[in-house]
């Protein structure tokens, strides 16, 4: 039975994957056609200035790019590394500080009362609004940009961790106490694993938000990085480079989020299978 079930599952799985790949290719193709059409065929004068997909691709893969940025130039990778370094540093700081704070907020009432109102008030301030203050506060642009990115990622991690702790069914706490758990056992065996799915949701959001605010920060206050590339290319009328910067951002951001997802799936085998199992 197990064998037959397994075979059925895998052939069904491959059918789903094939379908997904097919739809994905179709989606990309449609987007490219739309892009090409709006630049070359459709009567939108503003679009005429933009490069079409072929133009971007040509510049991107050129050994001797017209505007200095392609996969064959060292600068391209320097910018990617700068951006990745800032995003991951800020993200790591947000995780190291935000997850414990979120757990403490869910666990100890006093911590919650100290921080809840403060976070609620600070959170709606958009990252860009922090940029001037960050530049004044920190010596040099690097810490300023990282600080702004950190703030955004920090809210997402802290609040999602807290929500995760609050959402744990009270029966799990009671069951642990019945079985003789001490507070430290409850923290280790109920609060942390129970909040884990929500923590990882928070990390995904934080990583997305980190890239989002990073580009804003780099456009204003940096000499390197993909945000800088995009803004600088705009100022210098190097339109294909704008698109190269944007597509690269999308790709790097996706890889970062995917890494978090893979880490989460590995850490929460139970959660994956729980979703897969037929319930009720």
């Amino acid at each position: 039975m197990a064998l037959r079930g397994g075979g059925g599952q895998s052939s069904m799985l491959s059918a789903i994957v094939n379908r997904r790949v097919g739809l994905m290719v179709f989606g990309f193709a449609a987007a490219f056609v739309l892009w090409y059409a709006s630049v070359n065929w459709l009567p939108f004068p503003a679009f005429r200035r933009l490069p079409d997909p072929a133009g971007v691709l040509q510049e991107w893969l050129s050994r001797d790019p017209a505007y200095g940025i392609s996969v064959f130039t060292a600068d391209y990778y320097v910018h990617i590394l700068y951006s990745t370094y800032r995003a991951t540093t800020a993200f790591a700081l947000a995780v190291v500080l935000g997850v414990p704070l979120g757990i403490m907020m869910g666990w100890k009432k006093t911590v919650r009362e100290y921080s809840d109102a403060l976070l609620t008030l600070l959170r709606p301030i958009p990252p860009l609004a922090w940029v001037p203050l960050a530049i004044l506060l920190f010596p040099g642009t690097e810490p300023a940009v990282i600080f702004v990115v950190f703030l955004v990622a920090f809210y997402a991690t802290t609040l999602n961790t807290w929500v995760g702790v609050r959402a744990i069914d009270v029966a799990y706490f009671r069951a642990a106490l019945c079985l003789g758990a001490r507070p430290v056992d409850v923290l280790r065996d109920v609060i942390i694993p129970g909040a884990m799915p929500s923590i990882f949701t928070g990390l995904q959001i934080a990583m997305g938000a980190a890239w989002f605010s990073l580009v804003a920060g780099e456009m204003i206050a940096a000499r390197y990085g993909l945000g800088y590339v995009i803004w600088e290319a705009y100022n210098l009328i190097q339109y294909p480079t704008i698109v190269i910067g944007m597509v690269t951002l999308g790709f790097v951001g996706y890889v970062c989020s995917a890494l978090i997802r893979v880490a989460g799936d590995r850490l929460m085998r139970w959660h994956q299978k729980n979703i897969g199992a037929v319930r009720g």
Binding site: A175, G180, P193, W270
Partner: peptide
């Protein structure tokens, strides 16, 4: 205080979903 001399089995079930059956049973 709740303790292992009086153990509750809950209406909706409260096995820890993040622990295997064996780890649940040995938890106490």
């Amino acid at each position: 205080h709740p303790g292992p001399d009086r153990i509750v089995v809950f209406q909706e079930g409260a096995l820890f979903p993040w622990k295997t059956v064996l780890d649940n049973v040995t938890y106490g």
